[in-house]
Design a protein around this nucleic acid. Structure first.
Lengths: 188, 188
DNA sequence: GTCTATACCTGGATAGAC
DNA sequence: GTCTATCCAGGTATAGAC
């Protein structure tokens, strides 16, 4: 089965990239940890950079999909944004590596042609939710970037603390209080 | 003059580290750009990592000093926190490399023994300001981490956008609106 | 498609003259 | 204290057998 190996390599790469960083992970490390040969890796991926890119695209797609679903399943900015924070907290605890890689990695340094994360699909969608909230009167009239960073900045910062291991509590416990602050900052 | 070279090397390293990243910068690159010999670099610093460490300590000290000054010169949490945001916005525009290196770099990857940035002195002081604000009644009773991330999370996120070049406006223009959101999120 | 062996080179670090 | 020349490890990527 070809796609098994493909996925195995990606999973292993994600683990090592987030644990040690892209530059501290050699292709040999991936090979050893995945019990795959170097030749096999280079058969599936053009080079090391291509692994990182495939990984990024995969995870960004997954997140963008989740954001779209939230758009569809909830109708107010209030409910949508709260659900987004709930969702990213959940991913962070369930699969810290995913969040670490998508949110925390300095992709510019190893994916030169990558647009910055904050202008990638999922983050664009998050901003859209806020802008729509301004249009329908739920949210004050503010600069869109300022409104979006006010709503999500605190939560993202908490995620950073969590990923750095300096947050005493579980993220899930923080959801309510964090959300109340976020919403208070922009709601009418 | 010995300390001139020392500082020249640090300045050059900061420029290259923030522009291309630590791992994409070779000691040869620093040497070339600074018009200094390799031998000279290794005379002043034990190794490449030591350059990065000296840089981090320098910048963290400068920032911690600024935070202390703010603590002394302002007496309310409201004024202190606002001044902190004003200050970090200003640094970011005057010397983006400084902010980039202190706030954005993944130090763990090249300074293994470094405590995470968010638990470094300057960030501890920022949290202290918020906690004191809770004690004297300016700020609601909240979990300290949540309160601190709510106050500063939006601003830090805006700085990220700015450093990534995706923020349309100048940071200085955003200060008032950003601060109003931040304060609204936690004030009584 | 998967493996092993290896070529090739970059880059960190040292030696030793001045 | 500063320089040039050089060493050497480790890492990316390829060749070619199976």
């Amino acid at each position: 089965m070809t796609s098994n190996k493909h996925q195995l390599i990606l999973d292993t790469a994600l683990e090592l990239f987030t644990k040690r960083g892209y530059f501290n992970t050699s292709v040999h490390d991936i090979q050893k940890q995945a019990n795959v040969s170097i030749g096999s890796i280079y058969h599936h991926f053009k080079n090391k950079e291509a692994i990182a890119k495939a990984l990024f695209d995969d995870l960004a797609d997954t997140m963008a999909k989740a954001m779209s679903d939230i758009m569809v399943n909830y109708s107010t900015a209030h409910d949508r944004c709260r659900e987004v924070i709930s969702y990213i907290f959940k991913i962070t605890e369930d699969s810290p590596q995913t969040m670490n890689y998508i949110l925390y990695a300095k992709h510019k340094e190893f994916l030169p042609d990558q647009k910055p994360v904050c202008s990638s699909r999922p983050f664009e969608l998050m901003k859209d939710m806020v802008v729509q909230g301004m249009e329908n009167g739920e949210i004050r009239q503010l600069d869109p970037d300022i409104a979006a960073t006010s709503v999500f900045g605190g939560a993202i910062r908490l995620i950073h603390l969590h990923l750095d291991g300096v947050l005493g509590r579980e993220l899930a416990e923080c959801l309510d209080e964090c959300w109340q602050c976020a919403w208070r900052s922009v709601s009418r």
